[in-house]
């Protein structure tokens, strides 16, 4: 499976002359910074309003022997999006003209919703997904505090199922506006 994914190549190179000049004059750190900025534009395949950087999935970008190494961490062990995310990152960087890209997976420390940026939490809410309410103790999966309805803001909400449409979400319902909504579980 991995070989099928990594053998696919995006042939479109749109690195501009200006960018190439920047590459020539800029140091290693500035080119790594630029890769980070590009990755900020790679959407999560299941929740496209947030990027893979917003969600804390990209842990590191480095340069080794002229090759960019992007280190990612899986959200849930069996999340089907993990393979797609690696492929999307590779494709996005190929599209920017970077040919030599390696994706590495890092398990430890395990991904946590605490890594989701404030900016992304706001985007999730506007998209109709209640952002995670971070608990006092890691590993306690029940929502630590009240979960606000992403539509009307009411705190009069109830969990209908601990599991939702993707591994990272739970099903909730608002008792005031009566709408069901997804809650991005604290993890």
């Amino acid at each position: 499976m991995a070989s099928a994914f990594s053998s696919r190549r995006c042939l479109v190179s749109i690195m501009t002359a200006a960018e190439k000049a920047g590459e020539a004059s800029g140091g290693q750190s500035s080119s790594v910074d630029r890769v980070w900025r590009w990755l900020e534009e790679v959407p999560d395949p299941e929740i496209p309003v947030v990027s893979v950087v917003d969600l804390g999935i990209v842990r590191d970008v480095s340069m080794e022997d002229g090759k960019y190494v992007v280190t990612v961490t899986p959200t849930y062990s069996g999340c089907p999006a993990t393979a797609v995310i690696s492929l999307d990152i590779e494709n996005a960087l190929h599209a920017r003209g970077l040919e030599d890209v390696r994706i590495e997976t890092r398990l430890s420390p395990a991904w946590t919703t605490a890594w989701i940026t404030d900016n992304a939490r706001e985007k999730l809410k506007n998209y109709g997904i209640a952002p995670p309410v971070e608990g006092a103790c890691v590993g306690a999966m029940k929502a630590a505090g009240p979960v606000a309805c992403p539509r009307c803001g009411s705190l009069n909400t109830v969990e209908t199922s601990r599991f939702g449409s993707t591994p990272c979400k739970a099903h909730w319902r608002c008792n005031d506006c009566l709408e069901p909504f997804d809650y991005f579980k604290s993890f």
């Binding site: 849930y76 069996g78 199922s161 601990r162 939702g164 449409s165 591994p167 099903h171």
Partner: peptide
């Protein structure tokens, strides 16, 4: 959905 999600976690592990 819950059973499928638990199965997914376990197969990932």
């Amino acid at each position: 959905i819950a059973l499928a999600n638990v199965a997914l976690d376990l197969i990932g592990q």
